[in-house]
Lab assay of single mutants.
Amino acid sequence: KKIKIDLKKGPEGLGFTVVTRDSSIHGPGPIFVKNILPKGAAIKDGRLQSGDRILEVNGRDVTGRTQEELVAMLRSTKQGETASLVIAR
Rank of each mutant, 00 (worst) to 15 (best):
K2D: 14
K2H: 03
I3L: 04
K4P: 08
K4T: 10
K4R: 06
I5Q: 00
I5R: 00
D6L: 14
D6T: 14
L7G: 00
K8W: 11
K9N: 15
K9E: 12
K9T: 15
G10R: 07
G10W: 04
G10Q: 10
G10A: 10
G10S: 14
E12Q: 05
G13L: 02
G13M: 02
G13P: 14
L14G: 00
L14P: 02
L14H: 04
L14S: 01
G15I: 00
G15H: 00
G15L: 00
F16I: 02
F16Y: 03
T17E: 11
T17P: 00
T17F: 03
V18G: 02
V18P: 05
V18S: 05
V18N: 01
V19M: 15
V19R: 15
V19P: 02
V19S: 12
T20K: 11
T20D: 15
T20N: 10
T20Y: 05
T20F: 04
R21M: 14
R21P: 15
R21S: 13
R21L: 14
R21D: 12
R21K: 12
D22T: 07
D22M: 15
D22C: 09
D22F: 04
D22K: 04
D22P: 05
D22H: 04
S23V: 05
S23R: 08
I25H: 11
I25S: 12
I25N: 11
H26C: 11
H26Q: 07
G27C: 08
G27F: 07
G27D: 13
G27Y: 07
P28E: 12
P28S: 10
P28M: 12
G29F: 10
G29P: 06
G29A: 08
G29K: 05
P30L: 08
P30W: 05
I31M: 13
F32I: 13
V33D: 01
V33E: 01
V33I: 12
K34V: 14
N35I: 10
N35L: 10
N35P: 00
N35H: 13
I36Y: 00
I36D: 02
L37N: 04
L37I: 14
L37S: 10
P38T: 15
P38M: 12
K39Y: 07
K39C: 11
K39A: 13
G40L: 02
A41I: 09
A41T: 10
A42R: 01
A42F: 02
I43T: 11
I43S: 05
I43N: 10
I43P: 14
I43H: 10
K44R: 06
D45P: 01
D45M: 02
G46L: 03
R47H: 05
R47N: 11
R47S: 11
Q49G: 06
S50P: 12
G51N: 13
D52E: 01
R53C: 13
R53A: 14
I54F: 07
I54M: 07
L55F: 11
L55H: 06
L55Q: 12
V57R: 01
V57I: 11
V57T: 04
N58E: 05
N58P: 00
N58C: 12
N58W: 02
R60F: 12
R60N: 07
R60L: 07
D61Q: 10
V62N: 03
T63I: 11
T63Q: 07
T63W: 07
G64Y: 06
R65H: 08
R65C: 11
R65K: 10
T66Q: 06
T66H: 08
T66M: 03
Q67D: 13
Q67F: 03
Q67E: 14
E68L: 02
E69C: 07
E69K: 12
E69A: 08
L70F: 10
V71S: 12
V71C: 10
V71E: 15
A72I: 14
M73T: 05
M73Y: 04
L74A: 03
S76P: 07
S76L: 09
S76C: 10
S76R: 06
T77Y: 14
T77V: 13
K78F: 06
K78Q: 05
K78G: 11
K78L: 09
Q79N: 15
Q79K: 11
Q79L: 08
G80S: 11
E81N: 12
E81Y: 04
T82D: 14
T82P: 07
T82L: 12
T82G: 08
A83K: 12
A83W: 06
A83P: 02
S84N: 07
S84H: 14
L85F: 13
L85E: 02
L85N: 03
L85T: 03
I87F: 04
I87R: 05
I87W: 02
I87G: 02
I87E: 03
A88K: 15
A88M: 15
A88D: 12
